[in-house]
C-alpha cells in the first residue's frame, strides 16, 4: 500500500512535469486570470528551459557551498583550526541576520548583472546553514563514541571519515536542504538582476499585470521548493533512522531554520 503522503507527492510531481511538458494544454485553466485576451501561458521563453536553468543555478551554488562549508566546519573542529571556532560561530550568527535579498543586491555592484551576482549571493548565503549544521553535527557527537574511535587506534582521518562525518550526516543534509530552499527562493529574486530563472515569469506577470503569469511562476517555484525540500528530508531521515533517534524530531526552530526568502 502506498502512503497518502507519498501518493500526494507523486501526483504533484506528475502534474508539474505535465505542465512543463505541454503548458498550452493548461491554458484554459489559467485563462480566467487574464484580462483582454492576454496570453495565459508564459510566451517569452520556454518554461522548461527556465526551470532547468533555475535548478542549475541552485545546484551549482549549493554544491559549491556544501563543499566549502563542510570543509570549513571540519577545519574549525580540528585542533589546527580551533582558534577560528569561536569567531566562525559568531560570524554565522551575524551572517544569518543578513536578508538574502540584501546579499543578492549587494553582489550586483561587485559583479554586475546576470548570473554572476545570483550565483555569488546563493553561494555566500548558502554557506551559512550548511556550516552551522555541520558545526553542530561535528561538535555535539557523543564524547564516548569519539573517544572510542581514538582508543581503537583510528587515525584522525579514519575517525573523521568512518565515525564523525557519518554521525553528523543527518544534520549536514538538513543544512544542505535549508541552503537549497533558500537558494531556490533567492534565485527567483535573481530574475530582477537578469539571472535566467523562473522569477522571470513572475516579474513579467507583475510588469504586464498578467495574473496568469504570476500564478504559474509562483506555483512552479513553490512546488519545486516543496518537492526538493521533501527529498532532502527523506534522505536525512534515512541516514538517521538506524541510530534510533531522529535528530530533527522536536528540535525548536533556531536561527538556522529561517527558510523563506
Amino acid at each position: 500500500m502506498i502512503r497518502p503522503g507519498l501518493l500526494l507527492r507523486l501526483v504533484v510531481f506528475t502534474a508539474l512535469i505535465a505542465f512543463l511538458a505541454m503548458p498550452d494544454r493548461f491554458a484554459g485553466l489559467l485563462a480566467p486570470l487574464t484580462d483582454n485576451g492576454a496570453p495565459a501561458i508564459y510566451n517569452q521563453g520556454s518554461l522548461v528551459s527556465l526551470t532547468l536553468s533555475h535548478l542549475f543555478t541552485v545546484a551549482l551554488a549549493t554544491s559549491a557551498a556544501t563543499i566549502v562549508a563542510v570543509g570549513l566546519a571540519i577545519f574549525v573542529t580540528r585542533p589546527a583550526g580551533a582558534e577560528f571556532l569561536a569567531l566562525s560561530r559568531a560570524a554565522v550568527n551575524i551572517g544569518q541576520t543578513f536578508p538574502p535579498v540584501a546579499v543578492l543586491a549587494l553582489s550586483v555592484p561587485a559583479m554586475g548583472f546576470g548570473e554572476g551576482p545570483t550565483r555569488l549571493a546563493l553561494f555566500l548565503y548558502g554557506l551559512l546553514p550548511i556550516f552551522e549544521n555541520s558545526l553542530v553535527g561535528l561538535s555535539t557527537l557523543p564524547p564516548a563514541v569519539v573517544e572510542s574511535a581514538s582508543a581503537m587506534g583510528m587515525t584522525g582521518r579514519q575517525r573523521l571519515l568512518k565515525v564523525e562525518l557519518p554521525l553528523a550526516m543527518p544534520l549536514i543534509i538538513e543544512g544542505i536542504r535549508l541552503s537549497a530552499v533558500i537558494g531556490l527562493a533567492t534565485a527567483t529574486i535573481g530574475s530582477t538582476v537578469a539571472a535566467k530563472g523562473l522569477g522571470e515569469v513572475i516579474v513579467a506577470g507583475l510588469q504586464s499585470n498578467n495574473l496568469a503569469f504570476v500564478v504559474q511562476g509562483g506555483v512552479i517555484t513553490g512546488i519545486l521548493a516543496v518537492l526538493i525540500s521533501d527529498g532532502f528530508q527523506i534522505l536525512a531521515r534515512r541516514t538517521s533512522k538506524r541510530r534510533g533517534a531522529s535528530p530533527q524530531a522536536s528540535r525548536p526552530a533556531t536561527d538556522g531554520q529561517q527558510a523563506p526568502v
Binding site: L184, T188, L211, G218, T221, A225
Partner: peptide, 14 residues
C-alpha cells in the same frame, strides 16, 4: 515556509 517569497506573494495576489 518552504515556498519562495516571490512565489507566495504572487500566488496570494489572485
Amino acid at each position: 515556509q518552504t515556498i519562495p517569497s516571490m512565489a507566495l506573494f504572487g500566488i496570494l495576489i489572485a
